[in-house]
Amino acid sequence: MRRVHVAMLVGLGVLGLVALDQAQSDPLNPYNAPPMLALGSGLAATGGHCAAPPPPAK
């Protein structure tokens, strides 16, 4: 196989995964989404960050 063939297979695989994700996912509701920038809004941060330090041990 040449690089062109491998690149085409990888591209088709990625497109297939995107199509599968679009077919299986519910549409996004922009009115229910959290704000992109919530500076000073009083909303608590949710989710995790892999670079955040672990909580102190007790």
Score class of each variant (00 low, 15 high):
11 G>W: 08
11 G>E: 09
31 Y>G: 11
39 L>Q: 03
1 M>I: 05
31 Y>R: 15
56 P>T: 05
8 M>R: 15
18 V>L: 13
54 P>M: 01
17 L>D: 02
50 C>N: 07
5 H>F: 13
6 V>R: 15
28 L>W: 03
42 G>E: 05
4 V>K: 08
25 S>R: 14
28 L>G: 07
8 M>I: 07
56 P>S: 07
18 V>S: 08
29 N>Q: 09
57 A>Y: 12
12 L>D: 04
40 G>Q: 08
40 G>S: 03
14 V>T: 12
13 G>K: 06
27 P>E: 03
47 G>Y: 05
32 N>S: 15
2 R>K: 13
8 M>N: 14
40 G>I: 01
8 M>F: 10
29 N>A: 10
21 D>F: 10
50 C>M: 09
9 L>F: 13
3 R>N: 15
20 L>I: 07
22 Q>E: 03
54 P>Q: 00
14 V>C: 11
19 A>P: 00
28 L>S: 06
44 A>H: 10
23 A>T: 07
53 P>W: 00
13 G>W: 02
14 V>H: 03
26 D>W: 00
53 P>F: 00
34 P>A: 02
40 G>K: 05
8 M>Y: 12
10 V>R: 08
29 N>Y: 15
3 R>Y: 14
26 D>L: 06
37 L>C: 13
13 G>D: 04
21 D>W: 14
49 H>G: 14
53 P>L: 06
55 P>D: 13
55 P>N: 15
55 P>K: 10
22 Q>C: 03
26 D>H: 10
58 K>H: 10
21 D>I: 01
12 L>V: 13
38 A>W: 02
54 P>F: 01
32 N>G: 08
27 P>R: 01
41 S>I: 06
29 N>L: 10
40 G>W: 00
35 P>S: 04
16 G>T: 06
21 D>V: 11
47 G>C: 08
18 V>R: 07
15 L>S: 12
45 A>L: 14
12 L>Y: 03
14 V>F: 07
35 P>F: 00
20 L>C: 09
23 A>K: 06
16 G>L: 02
50 C>K: 06
21 D>L: 05
2 R>F: 10
53 P>E: 05
8 M>C: 07
16 G>N: 05
10 V>W: 02
41 S>A: 09
46 T>Y: 05
53 P>C: 06
39 L>N: 04
47 G>E: 09
26 D>P: 00
54 P>D: 02
53 P>R: 04
55 P>T: 03
3 R>C: 12
30 P>V: 05
53 P>M: 01
52 A>S: 12
22 Q>S: 13
22 Q>V: 11
41 S>Y: 03
6 V>K: 13
12 L>H: 02
49 H>K: 13
57 A>M: 10
42 G>H: 01
45 A>D: 04
25 S>Q: 08
24 Q>K: 06
31 Y>C: 06
13 G>F: 00
37 L>F: 14
5 H>T: 14
1 M>H: 15
50 C>D: 12
40 G>T: 02
44 A>V: 03
4 V>T: 15
45 A>N: 15
35 P>R: 04
44 A>E: 12
57 A>I: 11
